[in-house]
């Protein structure tokens, strides 16, 4: 139904996007199949602590002798799960609140958006810390904390999109036909706002990865012995002068994933932008 998907034409134009996509696919494969690729059990002590990379342990062993490569691969999966679930929470609740605020305007708009402003006043990690303090540390609570923190931005974005869409003729036409609110929202507003929301979700995924790493680094996210990138940095940094790889490897993994997600998010935005803000109101 969409003519020549704009993302794919953007993809053809830019080799950076192509490279980012390849790397993102690799990360995703690792997240999906990490447990099968990993040479060892990530929680088992296999040898002497802090060994240098070798044929047996490609990335060496950590401070108590576990395989760093296996922990890294398992950690990818954790990072993915947290990022996707947290972003999903933010997207669903944020979009819903933004839609309600824009659609009903008036009091609903004022109340919802002032609440969002309050949430927005806290820096992301601080808000996550506050929520973790209430709910207690752990994987699930980390996802909730990160997700709730991203609701306001999603809500603001969705509200802006819907406000713009509400003035479009096809929405007025639906109303003139006698369509009810649910039909107008579901069929004539949400599908048109979705593209923008997905672009923002990509950027939000990167932020969620970073926040999860931050929480785990502080010991409030994923609990040991479950491997997580943030946790690996936290323990690795104690040996930064003697075995810097222990902190640098998970650091590089985080940096790489965020970098790639940001590039993909930007490309996606470039690909969709002219269609949404451009002069010609072609159906995108």
């Amino acid at each position: 139904m969409m003519t020549a998907n704009p993302f794919f034409s953007e993809l053809r134009r830019s080799w950076i996007t192509q490279a980012a996509l390849v790397i993102a696919v690799l990360y995703t494969l690792v997240a999906l199949f990490g447990p099968w690729i990993a040479p060892y059990d990530p929680t088992r002590i296999l040898s002497m602590p802090r060994q240098d990379p070798s044929a047996q342990f490609w990335l060496g062993t950590d401070e108590i002798g576990r395989d760093v490569l296996s922990r890294l691969l398992y950690g990818t999966r954790i990072a993915y799960v947290v990022a996707i679930v947290a972003t999903g929470i933010g997207l669903v609740f944020g979009a819903l609140l933004g839609l309600i605020a824009a659609f009903f305007s008036g009091y609903a708009d004022s109340i919802i958006m002032r609440l969002m402003d309050i949430l927005l006043a806290f820096p992301g990690l601080l808000l996550a810390l506050a929520i973790i303090t209430i709910l207690g540390p752990g994987l699930g609570n980390a996802m909730i904390a990160i997700g709730v923190g991203s609701i306001p931005e999603f809500a603001r974005l969705m509200r802006g999109e819907v406000l713009g869409l509400m003035n479009r003729d096809h929405v007025l036409a639906a109303r003139s036909m006698g369509a009810g609110n649910l039909r107008i929202m579901g069929k004539h507003l949400v599908p048109f706002a979705l593209a923008t929301m997905l672009v923002y979700s990509t950027a939000q995924l990167a932020r969620a990865v970073l926040t999860e790493a931050g929480l785990s680094y502080l010991g409030l996210g994923v609990q040991p012995p479950t491997p997580s990138w943030g946790g690996m940095i936290a323990t690795g940094q104690q040996h930064l002068t003697t075995t810097p790889l222990l902190a640098l490897i998970p650091g590089a993994a985080i940096m790489g994933l965020i970098f790639v997600l940001n590039i993909l998010g930007d490309s996606l935005r470039d690909a969709l932008d002219p269609h949404q803000r451009g002069l010609s109101r072609k159906p995108s």
Binding site: R168, D169, H170, A173, K187, H188, P191, K282, P283
Partner: peptide, 10 residues
Amino acid sequence: QDPLASVNGR
């Protein structure tokens, strides 16, 4: 007035 804008392109 605008036949394209007044229909849902999807």
